[in-house]
Structures are given as structure tokens and as C-alpha cells.
């Protein structure tokens, strides 16, 4: 009989709905309230706690954050008895900076310092004459495979419009064939006996001159003439035009020819300041 009773009890327990967490907690609370320390049925308490442990975590039908957002949007005051609680076993998402021992305030202070440093740096940079010249002189714009060098709209008047530049070194065999004065610069063409040519253009007046370089199927390489950044347009095929463009101060330089990268850079690094007499070509 006892065996049958225990089977019936087990079957009954299986068919009975499980008590909810709330019911279990209420029972535990009631037990603790009603019993003194001596009277407390420790076995029963342990059984209830074990059952509580076995309970599946409470699944809310809505997210607590959504609940609060909805209330905030509606402007309603939440009912104290209906505030959804976060399930006990739900893990809070740990943000990346919480793994670092620095407090979050450290990052805020660092960001503030960075902002102040950037603003001060840009202000100091704009007061520096060379940087101002670089910014307000020529602008560079790439449209598709064409690079345009033109007026930034804040041109600084040049002090020496008659002074200009020319190459101080050229590969052997090149002779000056034509020289044309620009607004504040010069365009010189050199030829050799094989009919190959080098063009040299410089201009210190972006308000009056414009340069365009079409470099489709060429490589645009960032290089340096001394310490000055420069654009190198390299056609890898032999005998085709390669071009080097750079600005120094308020002056734009452009050297083009059937030359190697080394030759172009050598010409660029040996530019000399002179006064050019163009009358003999006119």
C-alpha cells in the first residue's frame, strides 16, 4: 500500500502545476515569520529552497526597459505593484570599458584634453606663416582621374612677381626651346635631340593660373620633394609622360617629361630662383 501511495503521490506531483517563484517565496517568508528559531522546520525550508532553485527563470513578456520607455512616452506614473523586475539570473551586459580598471571619468577627462589640444593646435597652425601660405594659396581637388590645382579663394599677393624659378639640373642633352611668362611664373619647354621634352611650369598666382593633370591609367603616388609633400603621376610604360607636382609656399611647381621617378625628383630638388627674360622667345 505504501508503495502504491508513494506512486500516486509522485504521479500527482507530476500532474500538478509547479508553484511559481512568488508562491515559493511567499511560503518561505510565511514560514520564517511564523516559526521561531527553535520551531523552524529546517527540512521543509530546505525543500522549498531546493524547489526555488529548480524553478526556471522568470520570463517576462516584455522587456523592462521597454516598459519604462513606454511609460515615459505616455507620461504615466508606474504602479508600484506592476513594476517589472529584472530576473535574478539575467546577466547585465558588461560594457567594454568596465573591463579596464580606469574609471569612466578618466576617458571623459582625456577626451576633453584632446579637444582642447586640437583647438589650440589648429589655432597656432593657422597663425604660422608657412602653414597659412599652404592653406590659402593653391587648393588641390581630385575629380575622377583629373587633379585640379587652382585658387583657394584666399590668395596672398606675391611680393616679387618678377622673380621666378627654373630647373638647376636637367638630364644631359636637353636645351631650352620655349619660355612663356605667366601671371607670376613661367612655362619652359626643353627638348633633346631625340625629340623628347621636359616641361617646367611654376606659378605664384593661383588667382590667374590653373593646372589640371589627367592621370587615367597612371599611378598617383604621394612623395616628397625635400620635406615638401608632392604628387607623382607615373605612367609605368617607357617613353610616356610622367609628372611631378608640388607647392612650396605660395608657388606651384609642375615638371613633366619622359623621365624616371629619380630624374623627376632630382630636377625638383634642384630648382633655383631666378629672373627670367622671356623677350628673346617672343
Amino acid at each position: 500500500m505504501n508503495g502504491e501511495d508513494s506512486k500516486d503521490k509522485k504521479a500527482l506531483e507530476e500532474t500538478m502545476p509547479l508553484r511559481s517563484n512568488l508562491q515559493l517565496l511567499q511560503e518561505i517568508q510565511q514560514m520564517l515569520k511564523d516559526s521561531s528559531a527553535e520551531e523552524l522546520d529546517v527540512d521543509a525550508l530546505e525543500a522549498l529552497l531546493a524547489e526555488l532553485d529548480e524553478q526556471a527563470p522568470v520570463e517576462l513578456d516584455h522587456d523592462p526597459e521597454d516598459f519604462w520607455k513606454e511609460l515615459m512616452q505616455k507620461g504615466e506614473v508606474p504602479d508600484e505593484n506592476n513594476i517589472p523586475k529584472r530576473p535574478a539570473d539575467e546577466r547585465r551586459e558588461v560594457r567594454w570599458f568596465e573591463y579596464i580598471s580606469f574609471p569612466r571619468r578618466f576617458f571623459k577627462v582625456a577626451a576633453c584634453f584632446l579637444l582642447v589640444f586640437s583647438l589650440c593646435g589648429s589655432t597656432v597652425a593657422m597663425a604660422h606663416p608657412e602653414i597659412v601660405e599652404a592653406v590659402v594659396g593653391w587648393f588641390r581637388e581630385i575629380v575622377g582621374t583629373t587633379t585640379k590645382y587652382g585658387d583657394s579663394g584666399q590668395t596672398v599677393a606675391t611680393d616679387h612677381p618678377a622673380a621666378t624659378y627654373r630647373p638647376g639640373w636637367l638630364p644631359d642633352g636637353y636645351e631650352e626651346a620655349s619660355c612663356h611668362e605667366l601671371s607670376s611664373g613661367v612655362d619652359i619647354l626643353y627638348f633633346n635631340e631625340e625629340g623628347l621634352y621636359i616641361s617646367f611650369t611654376c606659378s605664384s598666382d593661383p588667382a590667374s593660373s590653373a593646372l589640371s593633370v589627367n592621370w587615367e591609367h597612371c599611378d598617383l603616388i604621394s612623395t616628397k620633394v625635400g620635406a615638401t609633400p608632392a604628387d607623382l603621376y607615373m605612367d609605368r610604360r617607357e617613353g610616356e609622360l610622367n609628372v611631378l607636382v608640388w607647392t612650396k609656399g605660395n608657388t606651384l611647381f609642375c615638371v613633366g617629361g619622359m623621365l624616371t621617378e629619380e630624374e623627376l625628383l632630382r630636377i625638383a630638388e634642384n630648382i633655383v630662383k631666378v629672373s627670367v627674360n622671356t623677350e628673346k622667345y617672343e
Binding site: 605667366l182 616641361s199 611650369t201 610604360r237 613633366g256
Partner: peptide
């Protein structure tokens, strides 16, 4: 291929000097 073109407008005395300088392969 690569090609460059420089355009320039300036005034000399009572003349407008117009320049166009193209270099290609």
C-alpha cells in the same frame, strides 16, 4: 596617358595675355 594643362590670364600694359600650355605623351 598622363597629361597636364596650364591656363593663364594676365594683363600687360593694355593687353590681356592668354596662355594655354599642354604637355602630353
Amino acid at each position: 596617358t598622363a597629361e597636364t594643362a596650364t591656363g593663364d590670364l594676365r594683363f600687360s600694359g593694355s593687353s590681356a595675355i592668354c596662355g594655354l600650355y599642354v604637355t602630353a605623351s
